[in-house]
Amino acid sequence: MSAHGTDLYPLRLSVTARPLVFGGHAIARRLGKKGIPDWSIAETWECSDVTGAVSVVTGGPLAGRSLRQVVADHPEALMGAGWSGRCFPVLTKFIDAAGALPVHLHADDETARRLEGQPNGKTEAWHILDAAPGATALCGVKDGVTADRLRAALEAQDFDAVLRRLPVRAGDTVYVPGGTLHSFGPDTLVYEIEQTSDIQQHAMRWNMEDGSPVGDAEFGSHLDLLMQQVDLGAGPDATPGLRIAVGDGAERVFLCAGPYFALERLRAGTPEPLRHTFATAQVLSNVGAPVRVRTGAWSEELGRAETLLLPAACGEVEITGPADVLFGYLPDLDRDVRGPLLGAGCPLPLIDSLGASADARAAGTRED
């Protein structure tokens, strides 16, 4: 029993839908998500503890309680033994890039504290759910581009002159450390996992909320801050993830994993249940047909593009097949990622290429 007399259970959370200018209708029409407005939607924030957009529990004894309050009241039952923190550390979203996102970056931790007065920055990863043939993403600065050349190209809005353009397709994942200039779209549907933050600097002459123009003075101020935060050495690539067979017709794919978050995709092609054990909170998002989710005595259906937050205290979950689901979480890298993958015969450098090595390189660059 937790400190406030309520055993934690799988939490359904309120969703924030954002109608930004690059959005469309794919989250509702392609993924099948219900309960969102019937107009152009760019993002749905599935599990958020970002100030101003904090998710609220929508069912059970904790209904009406904010995610931040649940963290404060039940830190170890939610996050695992020994955990403490002021907010839930992981943010997840569905993103419909019907149009191209603005070119932008998010500060890393050190820069966010030094320049923005924020407790942390925002490293993120994109898992591509669907993409048109030939879809691409801008991600990182080309080799040899100097700060002066980058600024001149951003002023001219000549992004391809200085930024790396990557082909992306369904199933790819791109791990994007803080400080990396990036954009993706058009015609790209993404599940995004990231640090809990909405910190960002844009390189566009228009506002993503409504498309209105950004004046010269404001644009110059944005570029001043962006140039103080950009990592000229960042060069992420798209990866297919690392697969482990977990039964007949079932697989567990480690899509990305670093110190801030990990993301896995579990698929089962038969009615045989998927079973997943865990020691830290899991953000479970369904990217397939409706499934039945069981943990302990709790059992409910999880519909298309719906999300559950599974507290650490649950410990295990069973999902009826066929199933196609995502698990996002704050990992103990040795226990949750390296252990299972090393046991399956994956070499450590390949495992760390899912994200840990990218963050180590970024930290080294900042320390030099």
Rank of each mutant, 00 (worst) to 15 (best):
T58V: 05
P37I: 03
V174E: 01
A97N: 04
G144R: 01
F261N: 03
P290I: 07
E218G: 00
A262I: 04
A131L: 03
V21T: 15
A161L: 08
L163F: 06
G5L: 07
G82M: 10
G288D: 03
T196W: 09
V71T: 04
A63Y: 04
I199S: 14
R275D: 14
G52N: 07
P347D: 15
V283M: 13
L326S: 08
H202T: 14
R252A: 05
T188E: 07
P167A: 14
R65M: 10
T123F: 04
A312W: 07
G144N: 03
S14Q: 02
I95L: 15
G5A: 09
R114N: 11
I199Y: 05
A279I: 04
T320P: 00
S2Q: 12
I128T: 01
T173L: 06
R294I: 11
Q228M: 11
M208A: 14
Q282S: 07
W298C: 08
P19K: 11
I244Q: 06
D96Y: 08
R292T: 15
R18L: 14
E192C: 10
Y260V: 08
A358L: 15
K93S: 02
L341A: 09
R267G: 00
V54F: 01
V325L: 10
I27T: 04
L223Y: 02
L8G: 05
A234S: 15
V21D: 12
L350M: 05
N120M: 14
L31W: 03
P10F: 10
A281P: 00
L138N: 03
S353G: 10
G345W: 12
L129C: 10
P349F: 11
T307G: 02
T16K: 09
E306I: 01
A112T: 07
V56T: 12
E192A: 03
D352C: 00
P102T: 14
L263M: 15
L226E: 10
L129H: 04
D368T: 13
T136A: 05
L330G: 06
E301I: 05
A3C: 00
R30L: 13
A312M: 09
V317Q: 01
P273N: 11
G328L: 02
G59W: 09
R294G: 05
T180F: 02
L274R: 06
Q118W: 05
A107N: 11
L330C: 06
C314K: 11
L225D: 13
M227E: 07
V337C: 12
P322N: 12
C139R: 00
Q201K: 13
A170C: 10
S285M: 07
R30S: 13
G220P: 00
L62F: 00
L263D: 11
R113C: 09
V291I: 15
R113P: 09
V337R: 07
D231H: 12
Q157A: 15
E367H: 06
A305R: 06
D172F: 08
A323W: 04
M79R: 01
R338L: 11
W126E: 05
S40A: 14
